[in-house]
């Protein structure tokens, strides 16, 4: 007859206690600086958005298209940020990326950025409202909007490779600055983000 030293009741109780302890969780919330880099799932996040936007604007400002425009027109070029298409299998907050791009362009001080088509609708509605309700001294006139010289368009692509709990995520953001009159691309830029996501195989 097979014999063993297992004390089933003791083993069962010990394992049950271990399982219960492992299951104990509590919620903690800690405020952190917004610039602090925090990666949880490995998905595209706010840090990636900020890095990509800054890298693209730095690239753009380092090329001669702004100076060429200044020489030709004697004024800062006016930009509008168009559509950045998400072509990845992740839900990327493209609006955050657009906002980061806008901010970086405005803060560069070398270009003027005008409102997007969506924002313009709201502004025009307000202007229309002013025509009826604002005083003659403060009402804003129609037809004085500043037209953009260039539109920034782009897309986010990705390649993921995973095996045995390890995953490499590669994102590429490509942007193009297109002359709104001639359709000429005056600048193209690209920034890449590569991440390694490792998952533990086991936990207690």
């Amino acid at each position: 007859m097979r014999t063993t030293t297992i004390r089933p009741a003791v083993a069962f109780v010990a394992l049950a206690a271990l399982a219960t302890a492992a299951g104990c969780t509590s919620t903690t919330v800690t405020r952190v600086p917004t610039e602090e880099q925090i990666d949880l799932s490995g998905r595209w996040n706010d840090t990636d958005s900020q890095h990509a936007a800054q890298a693209l604007v730095d690239q753009s400002m380092a090329t001669p298209w702004v100076d060429n425009f200044l020489l030709a027109k004697s004024e800062k070029p006016t930009l509008i940020i168009g559509t950045i298409r998400n072509k990845t299998p992740e839900h990327i907050a493209v609006k955050t990326l657009v906002a980061d791009l806008e901010r970086s362009f405005i803060n560069s001080g070398r270009v003027t950025v005008v409102a997007s088509s969506e924002e313009r609708e709201e502004i025009r509605a307000e202007r229309e409202d002013q025509q009826q309700f604002a005083s003659d001294e403060t009402v804003k006139a129609w037809g004085l909007e500043q037209g953009a010289d260039f539109m920034l368009i782009g897309e986010v692509n990705s390649q993921f490779d995973a095996e045995d709990g390890k995953e490499v995520k590669y994102y590429q953001v490509d942007c193009y600055l297109v002359d709104l009159e001639s359709n000429v691309k005056v600048w193209t830029g690209s920034t890449k983000i590569k991440k390694f996501v490792g998952r533990s195989k086991y936990k207690p």
């Binding site: 069962f12 399982a19 302890a21 195989k201 207690p204």
Partner: peptide, 24 residues
């Protein structure tokens, strides 16, 4: 998100399942 996090297996759960059943 949960399915992704469950890639990491719980040793304690596995141990309990060896005594109790797979529902652990």
């Amino acid at each position: 998100d949960l399915a992704a996090s469950l890639y990491t297996r719980s040793i304690s759960q596995a141990a309990v399942s060896l005594i109790v059943n797979d529902l652990a």
